[in-house]
Computed example of a mutant assay.
Amino acid sequence: MSQKYNTLSEIIHERKSVRKFEASTEISKEEIAAMLSEATEAPSSSNTQSWRFIVIQDSEAKKKIKEFSFNQEQIETSSAIIAVIGDTEMHHNIDEIYRSNFEAGNIDKLNMERQIQNAKALYPIAPTEVLLNIASFDAGLISMQFMLIAKAKGYDTVCMGGFDKKQFAEKFELEDRYVPIVLIALGKAAAPAYGSTRLPLEKIATFI
């Protein structure tokens, strides 16, 4: 296993977007599942957890995805592609989520019932655009969390929004409620990632 990092600050600074992966590196289904499970500790809107995942390790499936993803090399050479999918009908899980939270002892029955009532009054009638924005925002939170977890375990990633989402949805026969948000290539870097700079804080933050 490659270098592991001891602090969150190290992980954040060492994580870079890698576009050349070692095609021979294999990552087990169990290890990817463990990383995804840990990533689900990310926050989400009203804890609706609108994210879904398709983990693609099959070489022929990756080749097909590459065809409608601007032929990006990392799609085919990565150990896996994690497709992060947004569920725009997240309200179907409201009862299960809040009842589970109650059974875990995190909220009392009164709060559970109030939260279920409030969520059911909001999400089922929200415009599709609003629901898509929520799902996209939640997908961004968990995607970043997953990439940091992967880096902490010695793996590399790159997050990609540049792919034909309609063709992806058709290939994987997604229901209308499920919307592809990003693809995350996961593996071991075959070449160093390019460095990048950031705007100075005084240009992007105001303290009042």
Rank of each mutant, 00 (worst) to 15 (best):
S2P: 12
S2L: 10
Q3S: 12
K4Y: 10
K4I: 13
Y5T: 01
T7L: 05
L8N: 02
E10N: 11
I11P: 07
K16P: 01
K16M: 11
F21N: 02
A23I: 04
A23L: 06
A23P: 01
S24F: 09
T25K: 10
I27R: 06
K29G: 09
K29N: 15
E31I: 11
E31S: 12
A39Y: 05
S45W: 13
T48M: 10
R52V: 04
R52K: 08
F53S: 04
V55H: 12
I56L: 08
Q57S: 07
A61E: 04
K63T: 13
K66S: 14
F70H: 07
F70Q: 03
E73P: 09
Q74I: 06
S78G: 01
G86R: 02
E89A: 15
H91T: 00
H91R: 00
H92Y: 05
I94P: 01
D95L: 11
Y98Q: 05
I107T: 00
D108R: 00
M112F: 03
R114K: 15
Q115L: 14
Q117P: 03
N118F: 15
A119C: 06
Y123T: 03
P124L: 03
I125D: 10
D138M: 10
A139D: 09
L141C: 04
S143M: 07
M144S: 04
M144L: 12
M147C: 11
A150M: 07
G161M: 08
G162Y: 08
F163Q: 10
D164T: 00
Q167G: 02
E170T: 03
F172L: 01
E173P: 04
L174E: 06
E175P: 03
E175R: 12
D176Y: 11
V179A: 07
I181C: 13
V182T: 15
I184H: 14
I184T: 12
A185H: 12
L186S: 05
G187I: 00
G187V: 00
P192R: 15
R198L: 05
L199Y: 13
L199E: 13
P200F: 10
P200K: 14
E202M: 07
E202H: 14
K203S: 06
A205Y: 13
I208G: 02
I208P: 03
